[in-house]
């Protein structure tokens, strides 16, 4: 539904985005990852039409991005903000109307969301009287209320306690089931693994990794296994590369890296005659590992 083609954005002496292209498919949750200052926010600002690229284009539902698309995109910036002196209800209503909802429709939807997220009594409260977490909730509602096709969330869980983070996560999944596409910008890798279907990693203004979470993980498997056993292993009869060894009482835990072409079965058949095996796990790299590895490589 959204494709970003060869975007370049230059700020004075600093190139924020250097020939970045990516495609977000309809109904998916897309993770936009990258260390601080990589260019994520610059890219999001281009998609939300806050700024325009120096070159390249953004295609939204087959059309070049234009002002008609504003109502179809919801954006929750990392730096949250509301008018402090305004009442909550009035404020969300104002933001909804700016996105093109009628007063009646907006009121109905705000009531629905406030009810759903336990905010029923907040309507007449002022923003300055709410806690930070409560303000985040208000802002989340303001972002999704006009049921945009594309919802862009920048660090959506920062500032939430675990209970509220879970509530928001479930709302995101539900909206996703109902058909909303998400772009998710974060450095919290565990939420990426939980939620995202697809990721792109931006580092130093360039895209350095792009693919589905599954595929990337598969790609970053390096034939490494954890094995736990009782007994003693004869190094001469174990033609594998043992990377680490840990000893817990009579239990031994080793990390084995197989050579290309070797399989877990070969490992097992070599070990079975020697020791009593308790456990064998493949080491699948977490997104966190991949992220760190990729970024370090580039540096």
């Amino acid at each position: 539904m959204l494709s970003v083609n060869h975007i370049v954005k230059q700020y004075a002496s600093h190139r924020a985005l250097d020939d970045v292209s990516l495609t977000v498919e309809q109904g998916k949750i897309f993770g936009l990852l990258g260390p601080n200052g990589a260019g994520k926010t610059s890219l999001i600002r281009i998609i939300t039409q806050i700024t325009a690229p120096d070159s390249g284009e953004v295609i939204f539902n087959g059309k070049r991005l234009n002002s008609d698309h504003i109502a179809q995109i919801g954006y929750l910036p990392e730096e949250r903000g509301l008018y402090k002196k305004m009442e909550i209800g009035e404020q969300v209503l104002y933001l909804a109307k700016l996105k093109g909802l009628s007063t009646a429709e907006a009121t109905k939807r705000i009531k629905y969301w406030f009810e759903k997220l336990d905010m029923g009594s907040w309507w007449n409260k002022k923003v300055e009287d709410l806690s930070k977490g409560m303000q985040q909730k208000v802002q989340f509602v303001a972002t999704v209320m006009h049921t945009p096709e594309l919802i862009i969330l920048d660090e959506p869980f920062s500032g939430f306690d675990p209970v509220n983070a879970d509530i928001i996560k479930n709302e995101i999944l539900e909206l996703n089931r109902q058909g909303s596409t998400f772009i998710f910008s974060t450095h919290r890798m565990e939420s990426v693994e939980e939620l995202c279907d697809h990721i792109a990693l931006i580092h130093q203004s360039k895209k350095i990794l792009d693919g589905s979470v599954e595929a990337i993980k598969q790609e970053y498997r390096n034939n490494t296994y954890w094995v736990e056993y009782e007994g003693t292993l004869q190094p001469a009869e174990t033609p594998f590369d043992i990377r680490e060894t840990e000893q817990h009482k009579n239990m031994t835990r080793i990390k084995v890296q197989l050579k290309p072409g070797q399989t877990a079965n070969e490992l097992l058949s070599a070990l079975l005659p020697q020791v009593a095996i308790h456990r064998l796990d493949e080491v699948i790299p977490t997104m966190n590992d991949i992220f760190i590895e990729k970024v370090k490589q580039k540096n």
Binding site: I70, Y75, P77, E79, G81, L95, L98, K99
Partner: peptide
């Protein structure tokens, strides 16, 4: 006020 409140980004994603 809009700038320090950081509401500006939300606003600018809706209006010019």
């Amino acid at each position: 006020e809009e700038k320090t409140n950081r509401i500006i980004e939300v606003m600018i994603s809706s209006v010019k």
